[in-house]
Amino acid sequence: MSPYEAILLTIITASTPLLLAAIGELVVERSGVLNLGIEGMMVMGAVCGFAAAHVTGSAWLGVLAATFAGIATSLLFGLLTQTLITNQVATGLAITLLGLGLSGLIGSGFVGLPGVKLANVSIPWLSDLPYVGRLIFGQDPLVYISIVLTVGVAYVLNNTRVGLIIRAVGQNHHSAHALGYRVVAVRYACIAFGGATSGLAGAYLSLVYTPQWIENMTAGRGWIALALVVFSTWLPERLAAGAYLFGGVWILGLYAQGMGIGIPSQLLSALPYIATILALVIISTNRRLSVINTPASLGQGFVPDR
């Protein structure tokens, strides 16, 4: 394997969990809900995915379990914020804390056990092509799923009636309600979708990235995903670019260190964040664009008035 292939493969592995978690949150926020519980849903996905894969021996059942664990955790958030109209920021934080604690409890029996790795795709002939074979045709399945999800979300939001309804609910829930759309039901569906992709992101960590269960193994990736959604001004194509930019700068920083260039490692570790903040500043100079895309009802609970 040539060095450049190794670099790109490592970048893709580092970026995919961010993209998976963020693409779901993007839909959630487009529907006007701010779910700060990504980290909690991710870590629940990671532990349930690992546990199911370890018990059944099938990585795919692990992926399925992770997805459902993410959905279950997100529906708890939905119940609290949509039905009981609790504060979304506080509830999201509570979900993160709950997820981190509960996953440790569920996973206590699984620490240090051998994991099941989700096998890479292997297409005869194509995967063995020089230079591009492994990159394009030999990734693990979740990488393809993350790309399909991103393209799908972009298409649905921009070109379909369902996307229009989601955006309407996020922009002005009173108007959407007056038009006869079921605001709360739409938001529940979006929250569940966000939970599913966060669960997948967790599965990526415990079944592909580092196939094992370790407490807190998400290590703050949920928060980076959350920042990426804002960075992208709620546009899926930008979100993908942002996730790969973050992962790319991070891995290239490690490469620069390994080559002994002599840039302080603290600066290199901060670079992904600096790059993301810079991009954010540059984007927000175009005020019109960010105002148009920001869901106007973001973070507000909706109580139907009649």
Partner: peptide, 12 residues
């Protein structure tokens, strides 16, 4: 060759 990850614990 030395690579610093600036964390004590981040498996990824």
């Amino acid at each position: 060759k030395v690579v610093w990850v600036n964390s004590w614990f981040d498996p990824g």
